[in-house]
Amino acid sequence: MKKKLLLAIIAAALSFTGTAANAKDWTHVKVGIEGAFPPWNMIDSGGKLSGFDVDLIQDLCTRAKVECELITGEWTSLIPSLNAGKFDLVMTLGINEKRKQVVDFTVPYASGVASFLTLKDGTVAALPMTGERLNLNDHAKADPVMAEIGKELKGKSVGVVGSTSQEQLIQSYFGNAVTVRTYKSSPERDFDLKAGRIDAGFDSGVYATSMLAKPGNEDLQMSGPLIKGAMLATEVALGTRKGEADLREKFDAAIKSAAEAGVIKTLSEKWSKLDLTPTFSGN
């Protein structure tokens, strides 16, 4: 008897929270942001959040007619905090399959590229298609280029940041031919590249352009095509908890309208010197 009552209470509680989540009228949205990933987001010298993400989310929240509160957190804790209900949205999430299992994504709000980094007069000769865009899903065009890059990198070592889609790409395209070294962060990889411990690096184009512009990195250069497609998480979106369809749709619409209005182009060129406006018809 007691057990039955308990079950009834649990069932009631569950159904209550269920309906509560569905019926939630979104006016106040808590946004989780790392705040340590320039030029996307960072804490400026005045201690305030700034960057492409910060400018854009303000525009998106106005378009979605919600009030947004930005909360910073350690990168690795952002998704767990989202699922624990501490945030409602997480910024700067590259879309990939593994993450799709734990969060839902909006449409991308930025579309980046990835590129090789090499030492000028280093061990790697100039790679083909430097500075040109290459979509790996266009196999007829991309596969011969990647094969040529593979030939040049054979037997060499490539440094990537661990658990990124750049690492996955290098493993899957060149895993048999090159030694893959994984680092905790991009700057550490760059130290080893400059020291000649590794032959090449592979990282996001936005990171690479902003890093190369800084003093002390004159010996490094971007080499080969600006790559997107395949497993690369170059499409950057907002993440929501699984099943928060209302919130996701609100922001899908806001992102599309911001892209159309040219806001994403203006802001991304301001922060990264690249136009990161995404395309929405089948990536």
């Binding site: 690795t76 593994k98 734990v102 440094g159 661990g162 994984t182 680092y183 080893d192």
Partner: peptide, 22 residues
Amino acid sequence: SIITLMEVTGVAAKIISETYRA
């Protein structure tokens, strides 16, 4: 693991950041 060696903790950290299950 902080200097790219994949010993037990290095591999553990890699699995955690791939699966979010610490």
